[in-house]
């Protein structure tokens, strides 16, 4: 499935992913490929995107997550990639 992470200042991630885990307003949601059309509000926390064996994480706050036709859009007012020390 395709995942895009968008902040007001631009698109910060756009690519294929196997799954993602996002902080919704009322708890974590996991999205796997071919999820039904879905929309929820984002809370504050870490968004994990699993890409080809690896994982990328983004700190997100405020906004929404939308799934339509195997495309996931994470639209957050504050979002920033978190770079792991490893």
């Amino acid at each position: 499935m395709r995942v895009t992470v968008i902040s007001p200042e631009g698109s910060i991630f756009d690519g294929e992913a196997e799954s993602l885990q996002a902080p919704a307003y009322d708890g974590q949601v996991g999205i796997l490929p071919h999820h039904a059309p879905f929309m929820t509000l984002l809370g504050e926390g870490t968004l994990l995107v699993r890409v080809g064996g690896g994982e990328r994480s983004f700190a997100v706050r405020g906004g929404f997550l939308q799934v339509v036709g195997n495309v996931v859009r994470v639209v957050a007012e504050h979002s920033k990639e978190v770079v792991h020390a490893s």
Binding site: Y25, D26, A36, P37, F38, M39, L41, G63, F64
Partner: peptide, 18 residues
């Protein structure tokens, strides 16, 4: 066709200021 969580009214309430 969307599954909305929370409902449309609450979503709007949060997204309009954005």
């Amino acid at each position: 066709d969307y599954i909305l969580r929370p409902d449309a009214a609450q979503l709007l309430d949060r997204l309009l200021p954005l």
